[in-house]
Computed example of a mutant assay.
Amino acid sequence: MAEYERSRTMPAQPEQVFDQAADAARFDAWLPDALHVHVQDPPAVTVHEDRSGQDLPALLRAEPDQMRLEWGTREQGDYTGWLQVAGIGSGTSEVTVHLSFLEEGHDPGERAVNDALDGSLSRLEEQVRMRVDDTAG
């Protein structure tokens, strides 16, 4: 089993960050470019992976009161992850994303996963900044 985790500070209240991250209509704006989530009947979703060309049945749960998203593959149980938003004061938040690959064959490797996580967190931060700027202006 391989596990990866990355965090990033964002310039917004935790509720604003969580709302942006949990908005299913905006997943493509911050998720890795190679993943596309199609929400069917929540918590059931389908994840299309460009790398393999596969559509994988998955589950996605949002826990707004805990500011947490949790996801994972449905049938195989090969992959799970979570995103947690925490307020750290002065109008900033910390977002942590954790991924677990339970089967070695599904793990794309440390560098690829860390690059994808860093890219996703950067895109999420940009989406949060645009939303906060639109609200403030």
Rank of each mutant, 00 (worst) to 15 (best):
residue 53 G to N: 05
residue 117 L to N: 08
residue 12 A to R: 03
residue 16 Q to K: 11
residue 103 E to T: 01
residue 82 W to P: 02
residue 92 T to A: 04
residue 94 E to A: 07
residue 101 F to R: 01
residue 111 R to A: 15
residue 122 S to C: 14
residue 137 G to V: 11
residue 81 G to M: 06
residue 132 V to E: 00
residue 55 D to V: 02
residue 72 G to Q: 00
residue 90 S to Y: 09
residue 121 L to N: 02
residue 25 A to F: 02
residue 121 L to R: 10
residue 89 G to S: 06
residue 45 V to K: 00
residue 119 G to R: 00
residue 59 L to N: 01
residue 118 D to S: 13
residue 101 F to D: 11
residue 90 S to V: 13
residue 49 E to Y: 07
residue 82 W to K: 15
residue 66 Q to C: 07
residue 108 P to A: 06
residue 13 Q to S: 15
residue 106 H to D: 11
residue 7 S to Q: 13
residue 120 S to W: 00
residue 125 E to M: 13
residue 19 D to A: 15
residue 88 I to R: 00
residue 74 R to I: 02
residue 136 A to D: 03
residue 104 E to C: 11
residue 127 Q to D: 10
residue 15 E to M: 10
residue 80 T to V: 11
residue 113 V to C: 05
residue 85 V to P: 02
residue 72 G to K: 04
residue 123 R to Q: 11
residue 56 L to T: 03
residue 124 L to I: 09
residue 26 R to K: 14
residue 38 H to M: 11
residue 11 P to S: 12
residue 32 P to Q: 03
residue 1 M to S: 13
residue 42 P to H: 04
residue 50 D to R: 13
residue 121 L to A: 00
residue 132 V to F: 10
residue 70 E to G: 12
residue 39 V to H: 05
residue 101 F to V: 08
residue 103 E to K: 07
residue 44 A to R: 15
residue 99 L to K: 04
residue 130 M to F: 10
residue 45 V to N: 01
residue 132 V to R: 12
residue 18 F to D: 00
residue 23 D to L: 09
residue 45 V to P: 04
residue 63 E to S: 09
residue 41 D to T: 14
residue 46 T to G: 02
residue 114 N to F: 08
residue 40 Q to L: 14
residue 36 H to Q: 11
residue 16 Q to Y: 01
residue 9 T to H: 12
residue 76 Q to A: 14
residue 32 P to N: 03
residue 38 H to Q: 14
residue 26 R to W: 09
residue 51 R to C: 05
residue 35 L to P: 03
residue 118 D to H: 09
residue 62 A to L: 13
residue 25 A to T: 12
residue 98 H to D: 07
residue 85 V to G: 01
residue 97 V to K: 08
residue 43 P to C: 09
residue 8 R to F: 10
residue 37 V to H: 01
residue 80 T to Y: 07
residue 76 Q to K: 06
residue 131 R to Y: 00
residue 128 V to I: 08
residue 114 N to E: 06
residue 57 P to M: 01
residue 83 L to P: 05
residue 105 G to R: 09
residue 137 G to F: 06
residue 6 R to H: 11
residue 30 W to I: 10
residue 91 G to T: 03
residue 88 I to D: 06
residue 68 R to M: 12
residue 92 T to M: 12
residue 102 L to Y: 04
residue 118 D to L: 04
residue 20 Q to V: 15
residue 40 Q to G: 12
residue 107 D to Q: 07
residue 56 L to E: 04
residue 34 A to C: 10
residue 69 L to N: 13
residue 83 L to Q: 08
residue 39 V to Y: 06
residue 10 M to K: 04
residue 46 T to S: 10
residue 113 V to D: 03
residue 82 W to C: 11
residue 128 V to T: 00
residue 6 R to M: 15
residue 66 Q to F: 07
residue 96 T to M: 10
residue 34 A to L: 15
residue 47 V to K: 02
residue 49 E to R: 03
residue 111 R to V: 14
residue 70 E to D: 14
residue 102 L to W: 12
residue 93 S to R: 08
residue 74 R to L: 14
residue 118 D to V: 00
residue 75 E to I: 08
residue 115 D to E: 14
